[in-house]
Computed example of a mutant assay.
Amino acid sequence: RNRSSFTGFILLGFSDKPQMEQVLFVVLLIFYIFTLLGNTTIIALSHVDPQLHTPMYFFLSNLSFVDLCYTTSIVPQLLVNLNGSDKSISFGGCVVQLYISLGLGGTECILLGVMAFDRFAAVCKPLHYTVIMHPRLCALMASASWITGFANPLLQTVLIFILPRCGRHELDHFFCEVPPLLKIACIDTTTNEYEIFFVSVIILFIPVALIMFSYSQIVRAVLKIKSTAGQRKAFETCGSHLSVVSLFYGSAIYAYLQPSSNGSKDRGKFTSLFYTTITPMVNPLIYTLRNKDVKGAVRRVLWKDSASR
């Protein structure tokens, strides 16, 4: 490409490891297909089966939709990058990809906090659960999660793309993410890094604080249950959510809040690969493999289809 006329970016990705690119293409394609199938199944079941018309599955269907959109905003571009020689992305495409990925990531952070509050109400306030988590409040909390998630990265995206790059177009990454975009700026980005750190602390740790408070109260309530079966049922109900929280927040905190000098560039790429491809695929499995309600919904839907035939 003529560098004087090219205004987009070159995503280097894993181009320094051409043999690994071929393996990654096959693996990520399989992961992406399973991600689409798993999250679409949860969304469909939550809407089709009346027994899943509860706050828990309402928020879970929102979370699955976030995962579906998040991985779709990144993986198709990555597959094209891995499978072909054209590793470019337009300036507008990079802006949109960064904004959408940050918006969906923020939305998922907040939704996970909201889901922890829902579990707190279910376990600690069982007699008042339907009054606390009424449909209007659930819709309001879900809407607030989406609005806050997408309002948060507006300023962040603008500040990153107004940085002068002095003709630098090569991103040492497989998608448009904050750290590699900051690295190609030709001025001091300390102010931007502080702003990103501050926003990350807010968007990550406020939901984490809500989750920790909710589960501290849940543990206290469960320990007061005399029945072992009751304790097991309560912990099983919350176990799936805790597993998803650990995967998502662990990788996000590691990627965004560690000092940039502490890890190699390849480690950063593989961390991003983990929370953009593996986590959205694993989440549906976590929520379905040990969930009797979802298994029962699958059986009811399949039985209804076979009976209608």
Results as ranks from 00 to 15, higher is better:
Lys183Asn: 09
Ile184Asp: 09
Leu68Ser: 08
Gly263Met: 11
Asn39Ile: 09
Ile42Met: 08
Asp172Lys: 05
Val95His: 12
Lys233Thr: 10
Trp146Lys: 01
Leu63Ser: 11
Thr35Asn: 03
Leu204Phe: 06
Phe9Trp: 08
Leu163Met: 01
Met20Ala: 10
Phe9Gly: 01
Arg309Phe: 04
Phe150Ile: 00
Gly106His: 09
Gly13Arg: 03
Leu285His: 15
Ile30Glu: 11
Gly149Asp: 00
Ala116Asn: 01
Tyr70Lys: 11
Ser73Val: 13
Gln156Asp: 00
Ile100Trp: 14
Pro259His: 04
Leu11His: 04
Ala185Leu: 10
Leu163Val: 02
Asn62Lys: 11
Val66Thr: 06
Gln217Thr: 03
Cys238Glu: 06
Phe9Leu: 01
Arg119Thr: 01
Gly149Thr: 00
Phe161Ser: 00
Ser88Val: 15
Glu21Asp: 02
Ile147Asp: 01
Leu28Asn: 14
Val27Phe: 02
Ala144Ile: 04
Pro280Leu: 03
Ser308Thr: 13
Thr54Glu: 04
Ala122Gly: 05
Leu98Cys: 12
Leu78Asn: 08
Tyr215Leu: 06
Pro135Gln: 07
Val66Ser: 15
Asn291Gln: 15
Gln258Thr: 11
Leu24Ser: 02
Ser46Gly: 07
Tyr256Leu: 06
Gly268Arg: 06
Ala144Tyr: 05
Tyr254Gly: 08
Cys176Thr: 12
Glu177Ser: 10
Ser261Trp: 14
Gly239Pro: 02
Ser200Val: 05
Thr190Cys: 04
Gln156Met: 05
Ile147Glu: 00
Asp188Trp: 08
Asn62Gln: 14
Leu171Thr: 03
Gly230Asn: 09
Phe6Trp: 07
Thr72Cys: 05
Asp172Arg: 06
Leu12Ser: 11
Leu63Phe: 08
Thr71Lys: 08
Leu68Cys: 10
Val244Ser: 01
Asn291His: 12
Asn83Ala: 12
Arg136Met: 04
Leu45Lys: 13
Ile184Pro: 12
Ser46Cys: 07
Thr40Phe: 10
Val66Gln: 10
Phe91Pro: 04
Asp67Leu: 13
Ala297Cys: 06
Cys186Val: 14
Cys138Trp: 02
Arg136Gly: 12
Leu68Asn: 12
Pro135Met: 09
Cys94Lys: 03
Cys109Met: 10
Thr237Asn: 04
Ile30Tyr: 08
Ser264His: 08
Thr271Ile: 01
Val26Gln: 03
